[in-house]
Simulated assay, not measured.
Amino acid sequence: MKADPAVQRRLLDLAEADAELARIEHRRRTLPEIAEIAAAEQNERTKRDAQVAVTTQLGDIDREVKRQEKEIDQVRARTEKDNNLLQSGTVAAKQMTDIEHEIETLKRRQGALEDDLLELMERREALEMDSQHADAELGKAEAAVVDATQRRDEVFADLATQEARATERRSAMLPEFPDPLLALYNRVREHKGTGAALLRSRRCGACRLELDRVVISQIKAAAADDVVNCEECGAILVRTGESGL
Rank of each mutant, 00 (worst) to 15 (best):
A6R: 10
A6E: 13
R9C: 01
L12S: 08
L12G: 07
L14N: 07
L14I: 08
A19N: 08
E20H: 07
E25C: 03
T30W: 06
P32S: 07
P32E: 10
E33H: 07
A39Q: 12
A40C: 07
N43G: 13
E44W: 08
E44V: 01
R45N: 10
T46E: 13
K47W: 03
V52Y: 07
T55Y: 04
D60Q: 14
D62F: 05
E64S: 13
R67D: 15
Q68K: 15
E71Y: 14
D73Y: 08
R78P: 00
E80F: 02
D82L: 14
Q87A: 12
S88N: 09
V91I: 15
A93N: 07
K94I: 09
T97K: 06
H101G: 04
H101P: 00
E104T: 11
E104P: 00
R108W: 05
R109L: 11
L113M: 14
E114L: 13
D115Y: 05
D116S: 15
L120A: 11
M129N: 12
M129H: 13
A134F: 09
D135T: 13
E137H: 09
A141V: 11
A141L: 10
E142K: 15
E142Q: 15
E142A: 09
V145H: 11
D147N: 11
Q150E: 15
A164Y: 00
T167E: 12
T167P: 01
E168T: 14
R169K: 12
R170L: 02
S171E: 14
M173P: 05
L174W: 06
D179S: 14
D179F: 00
L182F: 09
A183C: 00
N186H: 09
N186Y: 05
R200A: 14
R208F: 07
L209F: 02
L209P: 00
V214S: 10
V214H: 05
V215E: 12
S217K: 09
Q218G: 12
I219N: 04
A221V: 01
A223P: 03
A224N: 11
D226F: 03
D226V: 01
C230A: 03
L237V: 04
R239T: 10
S243W: 06
S243G: 08
